[in-house]
């Protein structure tokens, strides 16, 4: 059973404090329903006793503390994944913003991922040809590596990244 709370103590954008909560867990996703039916998303940042601090994903404008309701959904932020995601554009919350249909998810995954078991890691050793001499010849990139580009403001880092991506 999902409980609704009307015990919002305080809102200080982007945070919201809800009192007298039960069974709320860290990083859980929640919904805030305004009196006019509008729903905004938030997630739990910390729980101390029966008081939970939530982070609002949208604006904190126009929220009536006494009349708005909070529902805890019992799971963290998830992304529905599928092979059909290729070629699509999403926003930071994983909703499509390219005007195309919603993705039919093959699986819902916690966006925090599971840390990779160190013993299951394979050592990266396979050469990737990027076509850029300074990388291929002198600072070789291999499959599975993480190689950041440290740029200064105003330098053409996007051009280099796009060149590697080709």
């Amino acid at each position: 059973m999902i409980k609704e709370y009307k015990t919002i103590h305080e809102i200080a954008s982007p945070l919201m404090v809800v009192d007298h909560v039960e069974g709320v867990t860290y990083d859980e996703l929640a919904e805030l329903e305004l009196p006019n039916g509008e729903v905004r998303r938030c997630k739990v940042l910390s729980v101390e006793g029966d008081r939970a601090v939530l982070q609002l994903f949208d604006s904190a404008l126009g929220i009536n503390l006494a009349e708005s309701k909070v529902r805890f959904l019992g799971h963290p932020l998830e992304l529905g994944v599928s092979e059909d995601m290729l070629g699509r554009v999403f926003n930071g919350m994983g909703d499509p913003i390219d005007g195309g249909p919603a993705i039919i998810a093959e699986e819902h995954r916690d966006i925090n991922g599971l840390p990779m078991n160190p013993a299951a890691r394979a050592y990266p050793a396979e050469f990737i040809q990027t076509g850029v001499s300074t990388i291929d010849g002198l600072n070789t990139l291999v499959r599975g590596q993480k190689l950041p580009i440290f740029s200064c403001s105003g330098l053409p880092r996007a051009a280099l990244a796009a060149q590697i991506a080709r």
């Binding site: 990737i128 990139l141 291999v142 499959r143 599975g144 590596q145 993480k146 190689l147 950041p148 580009i149 440290f150 740029s151 200064c152 403001s153 880092r157 996007a158 990244a161 590697i164 991506a165």
Partner: peptide, 8 residues
């Protein structure tokens, strides 16, 4: 393979 880009 990850290429994070950051501005110093």
């Amino acid at each position: 393979t990850m290429i994070p880009i950051l501005t110093m």
